[in-house]
Every structure is written in structure tokens, then in C-alpha cells.
Design a protein around this nucleic acid. Structure first.
Lengths: 144, 144
DNA sequence: GATGGTCGCAACATTTGTTGTTACAACGTG
DNA sequence: CACGTTGTAACAACAAATGTTGCGACCATC
């Protein structure tokens, strides 16, 4: 499975912005967030851009520009972030179409599709149960 | 997320072997399975090798060699296959360690780890509810 | 014991997706 | 206008899955 850290980094960015705002700042820059996440500012801008399209954050340009939350942290769930940031389905079908002349090759894709849909629905329900406020609380609860 | 078809192909192989055995044959070759799945025999041998290590199938060598089921299809769940075939966790952490001097950078990994573990446990429970017998039934139920 | 078909496995190529980097235009505050 | 930041494209680097080739190991059959 492709090691995919997009959800982790996106959650990191949201928590960081929120904490920074609670300290009285209006906006956070991609530079600051990238330093905390130990990555490149462009990576952060790309991810936050997707979150903006999903209506989770806002950005301002010009001098003194940066990112701010568009919604309360409590109202944002991991599912919101996941859907904004993860493109495809969890499990993939065959790369090349299986032999349609074979009973198994013919029936396998609809069969697995149905099964996978149910499983992904459960995953989504689970992700929807965790808010970013929960995440931030867990972050702050880490033992020093 | 990296489009990952290992679980799909492994389920395909198991269903194919079982159906072939039900038609009176003792063993199935990687060549035959590869033709049905439209892939390379070595890919099938690699996957089935992992299933053999997990005790789900057996292989015989020499002339007239091939693969057979080590357990009833009803007793094999998608979780068995998933664990045999998928190496890593579903979600990854940061590629580079985040800034440990930052509150968020310090607490994010334990926080997400805990959350992810719960979610993966749910996923496993869901996978365990589906047997390969269910999969084969769905395959045969595909409308002609 | 020779033959031939199949697995086991290593090595490498190909493909796909993510992440990192550089560069620069667009923007808007001061 | 000057400056700092976003927006985005283009490309490099990296990683993982998949595909391919080659060949030794094995063993039923003759």
C-alpha cells in the first residue's frame, strides 16, 4: 500500500492553524506550517488548496497574507479532510480487465465492487466520528 | 492512495482455484490463474506464495504441479487474505520527523497513531465479516 | 535415470503515485 | 511602488506495485 501521509499532514496543518489563531494571530503562512511539519511550503499550499476547495480553510494574498480556518475545528471531521485530500477508492480492481470469457474473470469485479463499497462506507462512518478538535486535544495531551 | 489491487487479485486466485477444484481438478497452475486475471504468472506465484505462508493454500512441484486450497473457502475471510497480502498500515505518518520543538509537531504522531489504530481495527472487523465463499457466490451471481 | 512441466526466486524494467524543489506570475497591504 | 505571500506549473526524486526474463529446484511419468 502506497504509504500515504496526506491525511496526516492535512490534519497537522489544520491543528497548527487553529492553535496559532488561538494564540491571537490572524493567519498562518505555509512557511510556518511547513517548518512544523518538516516539509516544503509548496506541499502545504497544495494540500491547503484542496482544503480550501472543500470549504475548510480560507487564504488571503498580498503582504501579511496566509491561511485561516473557514469553520470551527469541532465542525470539521477527519472524513471532511479525507474526502478533500484523498482522490481514489481504498482498494483497486485489476490493472488490466480480467478474462471476460471466464466465469470468475467476468464476475469478480462487480462482486468486489459491491463488497468494497460496503467496507468504505464503514470506514467513512468511522472517520466522521473524529473531529479535528478531538485531534488537537489528543495532540495537546501528549506527555512531555 | 496508491491504487493497490493485491487483495482483489488474491481473492480472484482463491475463487478460481476453488471453482476449478469443484470441477474435479486436483490443482490449478499459476499460468491458468494468470490468464483469467489477465496478468503475469509470476505475479500470481508471488501472491499465492504469501497466501501459502499464511496457511491458506498449498503448492506442489514437479510435473502436474500447481496450487490447491489448504482450507475450506467458507473458513477464509477477506481479513485473512488482507493480512497475508498487505504489508503496511492504511495511513502513513510524516515522511520526515516533524519539528519536535513545536507542540503540534511533538504531539501529532502519537495522536494520529491512536486514531488510526481504532479505524484500522474497524476495517479489520469489516473484512472479517466477508468469507471467500461469499465472494465466490457473488461472482457466480453476476448477471449474464 | 532422463524428460518435461511447474514452482521458487532473484534481478531488473516499467508504470504509477506521492513528495520535494525551483521558478515565477498574481495579488494586495502598507 | 515595494514587499511578502499565495497560486500554480514544471520537473526531479523517491517509493511501491506490477510486469518480465531467466534459471535452478523439484518430482511425476516414462
Amino acid at each position: 500500500m502506497s504509504a500515504n501521509s496526506r491525511l496526516t499532514i492535512a490534519a497537522h496543518a489544520l491543528a497548527w492553524i487553529s492553535l496559532y489563531q488561538r494564540q491571537g494571530h490572524a493567519v498562518a503562512t505555509s512557511e510556518q506550517i511547513a517548518t512544523s511539519a518538516n516539509t516544503n511550503p509548496v506541499v502545504i499550499r497544495r494540500l491547503l488548496g484542496e482544503l480550501r476547495r472543500a470549504g475548510l480553510v480560507e487564504s488571503r494574498r498580498g503582504v501579511g497574507a496566509g491561511w485561516s480556518l473557514a469553520r470551527e475545528l469541532e465542525s470539521i471531521t477527519l472524513l471532511d479532510v479525507y474526502e478533500a485530500v484523498e482522490p481514489g477508492p481504498l482498494f483497486a480492481m485489476h490493472r488490466a480487465t480480467p478474462d471476460q470469457g471466464c466465469v470468475v474473470g467476468y464476475g469478480i469485479q462487480p462482486a468486489m465492487q459491491g463488497i468494497y463499497e460496503g467496507i468504505e462506507e464503514t470506514l467513512r462512518r468511522e472517520l466522521a466520528r473524529v473531529t479535528l478538535e478531538d485531534v488537537l486535544r489528543d495532540i495537546l495531551a501528549a506527555p512531555r
